[in-house]
Amino acid sequence: MADQGTYVEQGKAFDRDMNYVPDRITRDARRPEHGPVEGELWPVEPGRYRLVAAKACPWANRSIIVRSLLGLEDVISLGLPGPTHDARSWTFDLDPGGRDPVLGIERLQEAYLKRFPDYPRGITVPAVVEESTGLLVTNDFPWITHDLFHEWREFHRADAPDLWPVDLREEMEDVMKRVFTEVNNGVYRCGFAGSQEAYDAAYERLFTALDWLEERLGTRRYLMGAAITEADVRLFTTLARFDPVYHGHFKCNRQKLTEMPNLWGYARDLFQTPGFGDTIDFEQIKQHYYVVHRDINPSGIVPAGPDPAVWLEPHGRG
């Protein structure tokens, strides 16, 4: 998803385009019980697909975390675009020769256009690409992680967490909806507000939600209780970027994450859990936002701080 085509529209509130390629990867290409089925169905098959997900992007970051938590590293390969992109596409400038070593492409756009020659929208991550053909399969980010859990279960590691517990699923859907609309997307609503009125409304919504989360996390270790779920993955990627980027760059500056005790302890707890902190690259995160968003940061100067060492301090939530 990320910020391909994201910019400030003067006088307008930020409105994210949520139209994605609705294809799904399911067991035996069957019709799934939940979610969109307007697109094509592809079969679960180890070694067939490549997840292209930039570490800089919060939406892509969640797919990297879920892939790691479930132990799918040897089942679905991972391509990592660099942190910056131009108006056309994410690029593989971190790889030798500037090409993805499996797909052989310089730009993710190539996989999109190979499947849809007249693709009309931004080139977003995460994206799943079929390795043998180089065709884009899907970029529908909420369903990519949903299906990594539900459809690839046969290939999960034995001790993989239950990211979608049946008894909590209804409440979890409500929590994730609020986290997405008010926090994940809320910081963007602040950062890309095109008027003072739009910004003020977005700021109020964001911190109302963060106050709700601060209170909720005062009575439980994770969002849904004693165990990590997909809801935690979805919130974590925004929290990890809050002080380095959203507090200043997106003007979400009532408080820093480090000044919200429960959220800060919770974020450090997750960061220090295998599969979370080891997917975070603060330098790539800062380069992406401060270099790409020239309408917000015309100089392109990337700030030096904050010190990432604070993420390794004891969290006290065990």
Rank of each mutant, 00 (worst) to 15 (best):
Y7K: 15
E9F: 06
G11H: 06
K12W: 10
K12C: 09
F14S: 00
D15Q: 14
D17W: 10
P22D: 06
I25C: 04
R27N: 08
R30C: 08
P32V: 11
E33L: 15
H34F: 12
H34M: 13
G35L: 06
P43H: 13
P43R: 13
E45I: 05
R48C: 07
R48F: 06
R62A: 02
V66A: 06
S68H: 15
L70D: 02
L72H: 04
S77R: 01
S77Q: 01
L78A: 04
T84M: 10
D86T: 09
P96M: 13
D100N: 10
E106Q: 15
Q109G: 11
E110C: 04
A111L: 05
K114A: 09
Y119M: 10
R121N: 11
I123A: 00
A127Y: 03
A127V: 03
E130W: 02
E131H: 06
G134W: 07
F141A: 05
W143L: 04
W143E: 07
H150A: 09
W152H: 04
A158L: 15
A158F: 12
D159P: 06
W164Y: 15
P165K: 12
R169Q: 14
E171N: 11
E171K: 11
D174W: 08
R178S: 07
F180W: 09
C190F: 04
C190P: 04
S195P: 05
Q196Y: 10
E197P: 03
A201P: 00
Y203M: 04
R205M: 11
T208Y: 03
E215M: 11
G218V: 11
D232Q: 07
L235G: 01
T238F: 00
A240Q: 05
D243M: 02
D243H: 04
G248A: 14
H249K: 13
F250R: 01
K256D: 00
T258Q: 12
M260C: 11
W264I: 04
G265F: 03
D269Q: 07
F282W: 15
I285L: 07
S299F: 07
I301G: 02
P306D: 12
P306E: 14
W311I: 02
E313L: 14
H315V: 09
